[in-house]
Design a protein around this nucleic acid. Sequence first.
DNA 1: GCCGTTTTCGGCCCGACTGTTTTCAGTCG
Length: 577
Amino acid sequence: MNKKQIIKALEQIAIYLELKGENPFKISAYRKAAMALENDDRSMAQIEEPGKLKGIGKGTAQVIHELLETGESALLNQLKEEVPEGVLTLLKLPGLGGKKIAKLYQTLGVIDLETLKQACIDEKVQTLEGFGKKTEEKILKAVEESTQKPERLPIDYMVKLSVMIENVLTEIPQIQRFSRAGSLRRLREMIKDLDFVIATEAPMEVAESIKEKLAVQEIIGQGETKMSIMLNDEYGVSVDFRFVAEAEFATALHHFTGSKDHNVKMRQLAKSRGEKISEYGVEQEETGEVITFSSEEAFFNHFGLCTIPPEIRVGKEEVDIAATLSDFPFIEENHIKADLHMHSTYSDGAYTIEEMAEAAIKKGYEYIVITDHSKSLRVAGGLDEQRLIDQRMEIDRLNQSYGKTFKIFAGTEMDILADGRLDFENETLKTLDFVIAAIHTSFSQEEATIMHRLRQAMENPYVRLIAHPTGRIIGRRKGYPVNMEMLINMAHETGTALELNANPTRLDLASEWVRKAQEHHVKIAINTDAHSLDMLDDMPTGVAAARKGWIEPQTVLNTMDRASFEAFISTPKQGHL
DNA sequence: GCCGTTTTCGGCCCGACTGTTTTCAGTCG
């Protein structure tokens, strides 16, 4: 059994114990053991004694050893016999946790969604102690919705909803300030619901205004300090609004940004210092005095930590590392000097080169690269050699009018053909300032074939960057099969950079992989791949995704000022063979 | 079940809301 399988087995044990209504601390002990393995970078073979890891004790170590030696666990096997598998799926239903499910299973013989539904219809559920008519109705509704609703939605969809909500919040006068929180602020790729923290003196009035102005399908819950609604959108997304006083805003924002594990780590740290963290502030346990903070930065500083960017608050090593730094040296929006991947009307872009350039100047960029598609990508109106020459002439002409303040570089997003050949000869490539290569066709090839194609491109002396290296569309398309370790090694060996495509439907490469790439001294370019002016605005999302991968500015090509970039592209590729 | 330069037993992160109660358990984030 490999590490992944062992982690899964431990988590399964936790779920089964939960369904049996076991001691919650015992349940969390199994989860912590799984987490301890996950947070350790080594493989199972490299970990000599799992029992020595913090969070793994005698009991869980024994289970791990058993799994390693026999491939199964007596405890897990026994639990599986005691509890039918279908019962596990019931934990996904909102309003149902281990305790209630255990009761439904033990007294009514509920073993899956179907039997649960029937028990509700037969009005048996409401007869149970601790259950009632309302609970039965809610469960029935949850069962019916669960079959048609995806659990999580892709970030680009949630960003759009969020912008719509923010437009509404901006118009409510009683709101002093507000912020996104939760997994969207942490930039998770797949998101369950939206969270907003709102500073206001008049929570009830604000709640009323929100209900009035937003397309609400249903009020899920409402109290004095929070309101949960279900939007009237395609998927019925739920949104939590949390109302706090202005002074509590920073701690509330931290609290509701999470993650859960990050918060647990922070609270443990506070506790060890005789303090208690809640959304309302930091309480001194001895005196009962509650301190509030003007910003998250001040909050972190109070604990001797530097500010931890939301994107890395996952509850792993970030809290310990923050204690040793004065600042995380991660990339910020203002480091970005250019966008190296965008399209114009020459291929499938919606705006002219000049219009794209004007928009880039407004953003304060020092230069851009126009990278239209190449001839084989006919659906996108890819350029042949002659059109490339025409385009170069137009770019030269435009550059004359910009003088020294701004420069457009001529590039291409060249297709890597299905057989590994490149769409342009070197004769053509060497006339260009910056060459991007990308796979746009034959996604269903075997991994070996895909890797051959990528290798052909990266070994070409003119190809500087591989765009959207996996071809994925978050939540919709897996992309073609890429051996990521091999890709990163090839990038290192050939001196080719990898893209972090800032489009929220892509974010390709994913954060965990740009982090690996940086560790291997591979350069990253954060590009919008804009096909229209508004898509240039995706850059901050790309930068946030880079922070999620712990990316530092010197790793990123487009943090170079114009002079450095010109020097870079006039120097041959530097591989590390 | 795990953990301990105060602890080998008694803690284990914290609070809001709901629905069921008649003071609180369960769920959620």
